[in-house]
Structures are given as C-alpha cells and as structure tokens.
C-alpha cells in the first residue's frame, strides 16, 4: 500500500481519476461510449482525440525542461507548421492527393525542425537563457506564419488531410494513434538509449556532467529540436482539425498549458529527472478539465476561474508540504517517515 502511495505517479493519477469520477457523478453520460459505423464515440473518446496537440507539445516540453530549459515558442511553431502545410496544399493542383499531403507534412516538419534547431543554437551554443531565447520565436513565429499565409486565414478543402484530426483508424481516432506513437517513440529513444539518462545528468548537474565528458551541448540541442518537431506535428493536427491556417489562434497559450501538464506530471521545473508517463497523465488532466468545463456547462465568463481553482487544488494535493501538514493535522501514524531531510541538511561551511 505505502509503495503505491509513495510512487511518484500516485498523486497525478489519483487527480485524474477523481476528475473523471466527479464528471461521471455530475452527468452519467460522461462515461457513455457508443458505437457508430464501427467507430467509438463519447466524451472520453473526445478527450483522447483532442489531447493530441497538447500531448505532442508537452512531450517536447518535458525533454526541454529536463535540461533546465523552457520552450515558449511551441505555440508559434504550431502556427508556422500549420501555415506551411496548408499553404502548400492550397497552392497545389491536387489538394486531395496523397503525394501533395505527404510533401506538405514533410516540409512543415522540416521547417519546425529548423526552428527548433534555432532555439537549441541560441541556448546551447550562444548560452542565451532559454526563456529569452525561445521568446524570440514565440513573438516572431506568428508573424512568420502570417507572412506565409499573406496575412489571410488560408482555408483548404482536402478530405484526406482532414482525416488526420477527425478520422478513425479501426475504432479509435487517428489523432489518438499519432500521440500514442509519439509517446512510444520518445519513450524508446530516451529510455532505450542513454539519451534520457544523459539528459537528466546535464539537467541535474551541468558542471559534473561536463567534467564526466558528457556532450551537454549536443544533448540540450537535441531536446529543443525534438520540441520543435513535436510542435510541428501538433500544428499539423491542429490545422487539420480546423482546415484553416489561422496564425493568431493556432496553439495560442499552448506553451503554458504544456508547462502546466509537465509539472502536474511530476517533472520539476528545476530540471533533471523527468517522467514521460507523468506528462501523459498531466496532459490528460488538463484535457479532461477542459472537457469538464464544457460538460458541466460552466459559463464561458466563469470558466477560466473554474479552471484555475481546479489547477490550484490539484497542485496542492501533490505538494509534499501539504502532505506533511495534513499528517500533522490529522495525526496519522506515518509521521515517522523522515520529515523533509533537505530542509534540515545544512551544508557545513568550512
């Protein structure tokens, strides 16, 4: 039992379960899943589908945060990626053709990769603080997206492209399979190679890593490139959903939701140890909360406050300090476990 409670994903996972339970109690239809034309439909399925852009962005954000960095430009990269893809489809003679769509996607991802590499260059080579380095693209990126679409909202009609966000593969949405694939790929690359461990080492102690011969520059650079490419995929899914390249609203504020999801999943903003499973849970919490607002019929004017209150609650539930406080107030027998060793450990000055 204590082993489960001590697991670092226990609190995020319980928050998710509580959130879903509250929804089901409020309205039993939340959990209802129906089958139509061999496809599954329902509020829970919608959450799996709609979480795709945030999931991809948050995955990249997890890697960047693990290196002690942050990437504010992901929303802007989404906008650029969507603008590039839709402009290519719009300009093509065969907007519904498979070749056109592949080219559109590849070019969009290549552009995203270049943007991610630019961020990584500023941070790892020039040593600019990550928040400032990525702020550059956050501001300039949307302008670039507007330039690509000549200041208009490019709308296209391309049935196959639309399938990316709205289509089904067997019984579940395509978008769901895309994020699952991304999670698996990132998980395998980070945990089956040594990249994850070296990333954590650089994030925890850059100087010790340097003296141990770790190529920290390359590792930090890789994280920003991954973040850029994943944001690019998110941009394609977003534009496929709307079928319009809207440079202002694509991925608007998504960087902040992604940071929130990463933190809810238990990865510290101080860098170091990261958890991909935690980020997945964090994203599902954020997305479920968005759905909850719709489902409970919270008025639009009140929804940001509602969202904020729930987030504060979830964060408090996870806080070790609140746990200690709870133990001392409710006098449980578990108080014998070491009380915050770090706070009491005083470095002995010589």
């Amino acid at each position: 039992m204590t082993a489960i409670i001590k697991h670092r994903l226990f609190w995020p996972a319980s928050a998710l379960v509580v959130l879903i339970t509250v929804n089901m109690l409020a309205n039993a239809s939340f959990a209802r899943i129906t089958v139509r034309d061999g496809h599954l439909y329902g509020a829970l399925i919608d959450i799996l589908r709609q979480s795709a852009p945030l999931m991809l962005v948050a995955l990249g954000m997890t890697l960047v945060i693990a290196t002690r960095g942050i990437d504010l430009s992901v929303g802007a990269i989404m906008a650029v990626s969507g603008a590039v893809a839709l402009t290519i489809i719009d300009g093509s003679e065969d907007p519904g053709g498979f070749g056109t769509i592949m080219i559109a996607i590849l070019v969009a991802l290549l552009v995203s990769l270049v943007l991610g590499a630019w961020n990584g260059f500023l941070v790892s080579v020039l040593g600019i603080q990550p928040i400032i380095a990525t702020l550059v693209l956050m501001l300039a990126g949307r302008g670039t997206a507007l330039l690509i679409t000549s200041g208009e909202i490019t709308t296209v009609v391309s049935a196959p492209f639309k399938q990316i966000a709205s289509g089904y593969l067997v019984i579940l949405p395509v978008a769901f399979f895309i994020w699952v694939a991304a999670v698996v790929v990132v998980g395998v690359v980070e945990r089956r190679t040594a990249l994850g461990m070296l990333t954590e080492a650089v994030g925890i102690n850059p100087e010790a890593s340097r003296l141990a011969g770790v190529r920290s520059r390359g590792i930090i650079w890789t994280a920003y490139i991954a973040s850029g490419v994943l944001a690019g995929v998110a941009g394609i899914i977003y534009s496929s959903n709307t079928m319009a390249a809207d440079a202002n609203s694509a991925g608007y504020l998504i960087e902040l939701y992604a940071i929130l999801a990463v933190v809810l999943g238990g990865t510290s903003l101080m860098g170091g140890k990261f958890s991909i499973a935690g980020t997945v849970i964090g994203v599902l919490i954020v997305q479920t909360l968005e759905s909850t607002i719709l489902f409970l019929g919270v008025a639009p004017a009140k929804s940001p406050v509602f969202f904020a209150l729930v987030v504060i609650f979830v964060v408090l539930v996870q806080s070790p300090r609140v746990h200690r406080w709870g133990r001392s107030v409710f006098g449980s027998s578990r108080t014998s476990s070491a009380p915050d060793e770090d706070a009491e450990k005083k470095e002995v000055a010589a």
């Binding site: 954590e200 080492a201 925890i204 102690n205 100087e207 010790a208 890593s209 003296l211 170091g272």
Partner: peptide
C-alpha cells in the same frame, strides 16, 4: 558541485 549527479 562537480562530482556526483545527486538525483541519479
């Protein structure tokens, strides 16, 4: 500061 990576 320059040796162990404490959380690993």
């Amino acid at each position: 500061a320059e040796g162990v990576v404490s959380d690993l």
